[in-house]
């Protein structure tokens, strides 16, 4: 029974090879363990030595994998920090663009048209920070208002 159990364990170990030298050690254990189970002290020592080596190889591999995973964890944390900072500055940039190119021109045009409708003939669109397209719209609105004022005067 013990021999069968040992053989089953060796089979399981053979199907679970992940490291270098593991296969070789398993084969050496396979050679020695039968003699060890029959009471051969030298074979027993060899078997214990090989099993210890097999165990040690796997323990080292776990430590290495652990170190790698810790490095990944640190790298991941830094990635999240830089990503969050990047998204923050990107958000700030787009907020500024949104305000400068959409909201402020809309408010300016609305204010100018309201002023004109309530009798202020001199209020015109202005905004040196505006993009060219918005400045073009300002100019056209100002020209319409100029023409309207000139028409009213004549």
């Amino acid at each position: 029974n013990t021999s069968n159990d040992f053989e089953k364990l060796l089979e399981m170990a053979s199907e679970n090879i992940t490291e270098e030298n593991e296969g070789e050690l398993i084969e050496q254990i396979r050679v020695y363990y039968k003699y060890a189970l029959n009471g051969d002290i030298e074979a027993l020592e060899k078997t214990v030595e090989k099993i210890s080596s097999l165990s040690e190889i796997n323990r080292k591999a776990i430590n290495t994998a652990d170190k790698v995973s810790k490095k990944f964890a640190v790298a991941g944390s830094w990635f999240v920090v830089f990503w969050a900072a990047g998204m923050f500055f990107l958000g700030m940039y787009y907020k500024r663009v949104f305000l400068k190119d959409i909201i402020y021109p809309y408010e300016e045009i609305n204010a100018v048209l309201n002023a004109n409708l309530t009798g202020d003939k001199f209020r015109r669109c202005s905004g040196h920070e505006a993009i060219d397209e918005i400045n073009g719209i300002y100019s056209k609105i100002n020209m319409i208002l100029d023409k309207k004022s000139a028409g009213l005067e004549s």
Binding site: T2, D5, F6, L9, L10, M12, A13, N16, T18, E19, E22, I29, Y33, A36, L37, G39, L44, T47, V48, I51, S52, L54, S55, N58, R59, A61, I62, A65, D66, V68, S69, F72, A73
Partner: peptide, 28 residues
């Protein structure tokens, strides 16, 4: 990370097998 976890799991299983072999040898 899943790959690393897989490696750790496999090696841990091998260590478990080694421990069972030791137990069998001690019984003898």
């Amino acid at each position: 990370a899943p790959a690393v976890q897989n490696i750790i799991h496999k090696n841990d299983r091998s260590i478990g097998i080694c421990e069972k072999m030791f137990v069998l040898l001690i019984k003898v």
